[in-house]
Design a protein around this nucleic acid. Structure first.
Lengths: 213, 213
DNA sequence: AGAATAAGACCGACCGGTTGGTCTAAAGGA
DNA sequence: TCCTTTAGACCAACCGGTCGGTCTTATTCT
């Protein structure tokens, strides 16, 4: 009896998962969720479909693993910004620059997230949708805190922090779109620099005007 | 061959086409292109699938007819703004308000366009893609002209007009996204008012500072 | 060490369901 | 009667996911 308990670890597991994720990222970001098939992903990774399903439970799970990674990377930056030393304004400018870097480094992730935003969420399993919603709120909340801090420090004008957070997020995401659609004529880095330059100009003038008023 | 005189028109033709377009708009905007079926559209319009295909050559054609209508409506506003009396700034503020109205009036169109933006265009017929690209450029060009005018009139600071146009478009589209995703807590009209208020504050201060410098 | 055996990684044919598009026949109108 | 319009059964292609089976490799036995 007994029988060996020889559980075996798969030495190639990480390697495989990485290969599948990379293939999936490439295809999902290029063609979107629905137009990418599991066979394609498997083939792109150099394996059969059955093997892909050995490592991933479903298409949905694979997809959301990527979406989650993308979110985490962005969220990491926002958290790091919040924890930095300095004024809220300095934090926001730092964040802006880092976000641009991130997008340049991981253009595929940006494209994936962007396509995901246009998918009809109702078609996915509730647990994933819920997760997404939480992620989105998390970012907005952190951003809102930063802006509230800036208002407290009198570096930003008295505006509704929540709206300001949404608008800031909107501006960044909107610029991402322009960049994704035509990277040759629209340089995201240059655009971000313009935003920062104009913002500081505005805020300086506003403080000066307020000081005189 | 036949149709020599093209007479004998179907009196119900316009009515049918409208019914199908309305049904398609409702479903496409709610579920996206891929998850909407032609049978559903036909049923929603109150006809059989065969009838739908009597009026429309393909799913693609029907979809792009809607996308184009949406685009035309937006483009119409931009053109109207450009032709108005007044300064570039007045035109831009007017445009901002009208755009918000348009979105409130035709939320479905907004949602449809938005979903379309995330589709991979390569999957559609080249003629449609070309048309879309032209439309998009047209809007950016018109916006760029308006901004250039504003700079000439010294109402706007000296910035690259093309970049400014992209950023403005990005801001608006980004705010649309926030609004589409959570209309309850983010009121597009209120956000636009904030943008206008902050902009004029900024521009007033900048001109004042420049005047003193 | 070398054979035997167990674990599990891998494959791709296949299945059930779906969907864009077609075909044919009936209904309606002039 | 003849042409237009309508309906929905039907078809072929596609796709996510499964399954039986094979092949590789680590472990155990002698």
């Amino acid at each position: 009896m007994g029988k060996s308990l020889g559980l075996r670890k798969n030495p190639a597991k990480d390697e495989r998962e990485q290969a599948f994720k990379q293939a999936a990222l490439k295809l999902f970001s290029a063609k979107g969720y629905h137009k990418t098939t599991m066979s394609e992903i498997a083939m792109e990774a150099g394996f059969g479909k059955g093997t892909l399903y050995w490592y991933w439970k479903s298409k949905e799970e694979l997809y959301f693993a990527l979406v989650e990674e993308s979110h985490n990377e962005f969220m990491g930056l926002v958290s790091e910004a919040a924890e930095r030393e300095g004024s809220a304004l300095e934090k926001l400018y730092w964040l802006g620059n880092e976000v641009v870097d991130l997008h340049y480094r991981h253009r595929d992730y940006t494209k994936l997230s962007w396509k995901m935003r246009a998918e009809e969420l109702e078609a996915f399993s509730p647990q994933y949708v819920e997760k997404l919603r939480r992620n989105s709120s998390e970012i907005k909340e952190k951003l809102e805190e930063l802006i509230a801090q800036g208002i407290e420090e009198e570096l930003l004008p008295q505006v509704d922090p929540y709206y300001m957070a949404c608008m800031l997020l909107g501006l960044i995401e909107g610029m991402e779109i322009q960049w994704l659609e035509d990277s040759d004529s629209f340089d995201l880095r240059k655009a971000m620099n313009m935003v920062v330059r104009i913002s500081s100009l505005f805020l300086d003038n506003a403080r000066e005007a307020a000081g005189k008023g």
